[in-house]
Simulated scan of single mutants.
Amino acid sequence: MVNPVVVGVDGSPSSLEAVEAAAREAALRGTGLRLVHAFGWPSPHVPPGMHPWSPNTAGLRELVDGTLAEAEQRARDAAPGVEITREVTVGEPLMVLEIESRTASLVVVGSRGLGGFGSLLLGSTAVHLAAHGHCPVLVVRGRPDPAGPVLLTVDGSPAGEAAVEFAFAEASRRGADLVALHVWNTWSEHAYEGPGDPLNVVADVERLQEEEQRLLDEAVAPWQARHPEVAVERRLVRSRIRPALIEASQEAQLLVTGARGRGGFTGLLLGSVSQALLHHAHCPVTVVRGKE
C-alpha cells in the first residue's frame, strides 16, 4: 500500500485548508490520511512527577480532540471514503512532522498557524520541513486556479530530477496540463538585486539561450515520454528568477520545485528562491528534495 498522506493540524483556518488539500491528495493516491497534532509544555521543563496526560491536563485533551474532530469532518467532506487516522503526541512540532515524513508519501501543512503550544503551522515549519523532510512537502497557500496547470520549476540539476518526476505524476493524477518553466538570465541574482539590474552582461546571449533551452529539453523529455497523457508546455523565460516564478504561479493550481539546485544564477536554493516561493507564491507549493 502507498504510504499515507500526513497533515499537520492545529485548528487554525490555514491548517483546515491544509486538511482538505491533504484529503484530496490522499484520494488521488489511493492511500490513507493521517492527522497529526503535536504540542509541548509551555515551559521548557515538565513539572516533576507530572505526566503530560495526567488529569490536570484533561481539559487540554478535550480541546485537542475537538480540534481533530473538526479536522476529520473537513477531510471527510473534501474526500469521502478516504481512511483517516489520528495521532496526538507531545513533542516539538518541527521534529514530530520531520519524523512523520519518513513514512509518508506526502506531508501537507498550512502557510500560517496558531501561536502557543499548538503552533504546528508557522511559516518556519514549512521552511524547515521543505529543507529537512524525507518526502515531498506541500505548503497550502494562495488562491490556486483549479483549472490551471501544474507549474514545474526546472533548473536542470541532478537533484531537481525528483521534482520533475513528482510534477509529471501529479499532473497525471489531477488530469492537468504541465508547464515546465526554466528562468534564466546573464548575471548572478546574488550580485544584482535592484530594479536596474543589467540584462546584457555577456556578449553571446543567443548561444547562452540555446544552452538554456537544451537544459530545459533534456530535463523534461524523458519524463514527457513516460507520461504521454500529460500535455506539456516547455517555457523558457529570460528574467529575474524569483519574480518570474511568483508571477507564473498566478495561473497555476500547484507549483512544484526542488529544494536545492545547481547553485548560481539558475540555482533553486531553499534559502533564497524556494523560500520566496513558500512565502509569496499565488498557489500551493510542493518542495521535493532530491538525492544529496
Rank of each mutant, 00 (worst) to 15 (best):
M1V: 12
V2Q: 11
V5I: 14
V6W: 06
G8S: 08
D10Y: 10
G11P: 00
S12F: 08
P13E: 12
P13W: 15
L16W: 02
A18R: 10
A18Q: 14
V19Y: 03
A26V: 06
R34S: 03
G40V: 14
S43R: 12
P48W: 05
M50K: 07
A58K: 07
A58C: 06
L60P: 08
R76G: 01
A78T: 07
G81W: 04
E83R: 11
I84S: 00
V88M: 08
V88L: 06
G91F: 14
E92M: 14
E92C: 12
L94Q: 14
M95G: 11
V96F: 11
E98A: 07
E98D: 08
I99N: 08
E100Y: 06
E100D: 13
S105G: 15
V107Y: 02
F117D: 13
S119P: 04
S119I: 00
L120G: 01
S124D: 00
L129C: 04
L129I: 03
A131P: 03
G133I: 09
P136G: 10
L138F: 12
R141T: 05
G142V: 09
G142R: 05
P144V: 03
D145C: 14
G148I: 08
G148W: 08
L151A: 01
D155M: 11
G156W: 02
P158G: 04
A162C: 12
A163M: 07
V164L: 11
V164Y: 07
E165H: 15
F168M: 02
S172F: 02
S172C: 09
R173K: 12
N185G: 13
T186W: 05
W187H: 13
S188D: 11
E189D: 14
H190Q: 10
H190V: 12
D197C: 12
V202F: 11
A203S: 12
Q209K: 13
E212T: 09
Q213G: 13
R214S: 10
L215G: 09
V220T: 10
E247P: 00
T257I: 09
G263C: 03
F265C: 06
F265P: 04
G271F: 03
S272F: 03
V273H: 03
S274Y: 06
A276G: 14
A281V: 05
P284S: 03
